[in-house]
Design a protein around this nucleic acid. Sequence first.
DNA 1: GTGAAAGCGCTAACAC
DNA 2: GTGTTAGCGCTTTCAC
Lengths: 346, 346
Amino acid sequence: MDNPATGRAGGRVTIREVAEHAGVSVAAVSKVMRDAYGVSADMRAKVESSIAALNYRPSAAARGMRGQTYTIGVLMVDIKNPFFPLLLDGISDSLAGTQYVPLIGIGRGQPTLETTIVHALIDRQVDGLILIGQRMDTAVVEVLAREVPVVMIGHHEPGATTFDSANNDDERGGALAVEYLLQQGYKRPAMITLGKDQGRADVSRKREVGFTRAMREAGFDDRTIRIAEAYEGIDDVTATVRSLIEGQEPPDAIFGWADYYALEVLSAVRSLGLRVPEDIGVIGYDNSPPCAFTQNDLTSIDQKGREIGRNAARLLLERIGGRMTAEHFIASPTVSTRGSTRRKTK
Amino acid sequence: MDNPATGRAGGRVTIREVAEHAGVSVAAVSKVMRDAYGVSADMRAKVESSIAALNYRPSAAARGMRGQTYTIGVLMVDIKNPFFPLLLDGISDSLAGTQYVPLIGIGRGQPTLETTIVHALIDRQVDGLILIGQRMDTAVVEVLAREVPVVMIGHHEPGATTFDSANNDDERGGALAVEYLLQQGYKRPAMITLGKDQGRADVSRKREVGFTRAMREAGFDDRTIRIAEAYEGIDDVTATVRSLIEGQEPPDAIFGWADYYALEVLSAVRSLGLRVPEDIGVIGYDNSPPCAFTQNDLTSIDQKGREIGRNAARLLLERIGGRMTAEHFIASPTVSTRGSTRRKTK
DNA sequence: GTGAAAGCGCTAACAC
DNA sequence: GTGTTAGCGCTTTCAC
């Protein structure tokens, strides 16, 4: 006897059983479930008490065939990057108190896996999709957005009309890093970014643009503006740092395009015997929790992850609710000052 | 015209359309999809080419109403702990090449949220559930396990017959930490663990038992065996470390029950002005990626996360395949030696 | 080996 | 305000 309330073996309680128990029609139960128009207080009370008595939970699969599943699909490129949990916190904040549950797929940095997951999510009839930092072509996303409401995080497309986005001002953030480093007395900042083969991570390009612009404004030129690519991704950061440090005119400060990379930079720099911040300054991007550890003490551009997540979910719910025009949320980055850029000798 | 292949607006390609295109019955298409018995090579070829031509993908929601959804639900207590991605890597390893996709829910350390997510996953007709580090009563899990195959990670229940589990030998791991610290010349190891109010994290208790046993065997007694609880969880580690260090007979080594906590211990200890490993040794548990950073350089008990994940998924697939007896996988922990316990002065 | 048809648990028209 | 009923897209008997 599987279900103590019904005595039925093997199956769950269905809407039909609830209707029988309450002495009403299945349509009435359905309406109560969905807060739909046209139920008397009396009926609502009866139905709700039957739902509670039978411990009824509607099948999302069945609901999905006609209406909504109350599921939000979230595609995260990567679960190891310590920034992403902040976004998820924000998304959860906005979803708390609603019927919606976020279900997450991890792309693990593999484009084919990302596609598989997005399809898997859509096949499961999610009501909306939040895409975090993935690297599909805009055209592909526009096709998706016709099937289901989409909000992108980590991808700037201010002209997009079929989907929304939530980001911070990455160009401004890149410039902020330069301004702050120079102000601290560093003379030759360099930047470490994603390799071009690692896909078109839109935000890293924006940060490069901001970095370059601010460097130019400070009097640097194409020869002295150094942007090194970690071709193989995160595993390649150490080698990239080494070639920078051991090369001609080594930098005295390094801007890592994301904390996840900047923490590797810290590690690489220290294993080369350099002192941070005296010999070399390091600044990251994201202001993720590990920055605050004493052993990292990493200055970082705060892109307001939680705020971005909150707004992404808000925009998605609005889309699901029927909004047809696009909205693009932009948070303002700030500098979170810590020890990794505190130069003693000016 | 939404779908270029069909010209139908607004909807997806259905099994009926594939059947018409291939000139066969819907039953035939269904059989091909599921590799079921009773299809000729000829028919299979026709159907498969129609599937490809129409770019057909079956609706998981509809499939779920009668058969399988080919979805594995994963409940993770927390996404911030850097150990969990290793488990996920292992799970993905085992699922690669199958039709199954893992969909993840994050409990964020909130028991009510965990329950909500497990229900949400079951309501969405997942074919199986992997529960990572959650803290439900065994009785509750046994009820779940009657509805759907369940594998638990981070919860020891060797006598459980209704669900499987995959773990490492946490008692052995706890003892290993002590043995290694003493061997390195440390004289007064202490342990930092979860507060009891933080729920019954089974693995932390096991590690305490191993720690205590090894300490006893080394001649310590109840007065000198120190296990401090971070009552409020991760945010409370710094305060706990401080009270340990500033108290009577401070320890000269600290064993953090998980890297996630041990990294906080490192931070706290250093912010108190102590040198690691000279003044105090620190050892963690999990051997998660951040241990390898030069600035952390954290010795850790390796519980073989990826191996655990791989086996958890393997066990789950076997259960889904029909195995009715329980299996409990146990990995053997080892010490990953790094700088945080390398004492110069013996 | 193949296909017709019932039905999974819901939602939404529509009739009352 | 309430109930009846036709599907949603599949899987699965069960005839043929």
